[in-house]
Amino acid sequence: AVSDRLIGRKGVVMEAISPQNSALVKVDGETWRATSGTVLDVGEEVSVKAIEGVKLVVEKLE
């Protein structure tokens, strides 16, 4: 799938994300809905860990 190429890519949080709420991230110039197990604020850099349906699963870039 096209989205599989995004695993391992870096992105930027466009809307705050919490474990209860998905929000938008920008990866390679494209906007995607994403979820995370932690709270992520706007502007934080993230890494794509997986794809669940049409959502990216991201975590904060260390």
Score class of each variant (00 low, 15 high):
A1M: 12
A1W: 11
V2C: 12
V2S: 10
S3P: 13
D4M: 07
R5I: 07
R5Y: 09
R5F: 07
L6S: 01
I7Y: 00
I7V: 09
R9S: 07
R9H: 07
G11N: 01
G11Y: 00
G11H: 01
G11K: 00
V12D: 03
V13M: 10
V13P: 01
M14L: 13
M14D: 03
M14Q: 06
M14C: 10
M14V: 14
M14W: 03
E15D: 06
E15G: 07
I17V: 11
S18I: 07
S18N: 10
P19Y: 09
N21K: 12
N21W: 09
N21C: 13
N21H: 12
N21A: 10
S22E: 15
S22Y: 10
S22L: 12
S22H: 12
A23K: 02
L24E: 04
L24C: 08
V25L: 00
V25Y: 00
K26F: 13
K26D: 08
K26P: 03
V27M: 03
V27Y: 00
V27I: 13
V27H: 02
G29Q: 05
E30W: 05
E30S: 04
E30G: 04
T31A: 09
T31E: 13
T31F: 15
T31H: 12
T31R: 07
W32P: 09
W32G: 08
R33Q: 15
R33G: 13
R33A: 15
R33I: 15
R33Y: 15
R33F: 15
A34N: 05
A34R: 00
A34Q: 04
T35P: 02
T35M: 09
S36Q: 02
S36V: 05
S36L: 04
S36E: 06
S36R: 00
G37M: 13
G37V: 13
T38Y: 08
T38S: 13
T38L: 07
V39E: 11
L40P: 02
D41W: 13
D41N: 14
V42L: 06
V42R: 05
G43D: 04
G43R: 01
E44R: 03
E44S: 09
E44P: 01
E45C: 15
E45R: 09
E45A: 10
E45I: 14
V46R: 00
V46S: 00
S47Q: 14
S47W: 15
V48E: 01
V48R: 01
V48L: 01
K49P: 01
K49V: 15
K49C: 10
A50E: 06
A50S: 09
A50P: 01
A50M: 06
I51H: 04
I51V: 11
I51T: 05
I51R: 06
E52H: 10
G53C: 03
G53E: 04
V54I: 12
V54N: 15
K55T: 15
K55F: 15
L56E: 04
L56N: 02
L56Q: 01
V57N: 02
V57F: 07
V57H: 06
V57D: 03
V58W: 00
E59R: 01
E59L: 00
K60L: 08
K60Y: 04
K60C: 04
K60H: 06
K60I: 06
K60E: 03
L61Y: 09
E62G: 12
E62F: 11
E62C: 13
E62K: 12
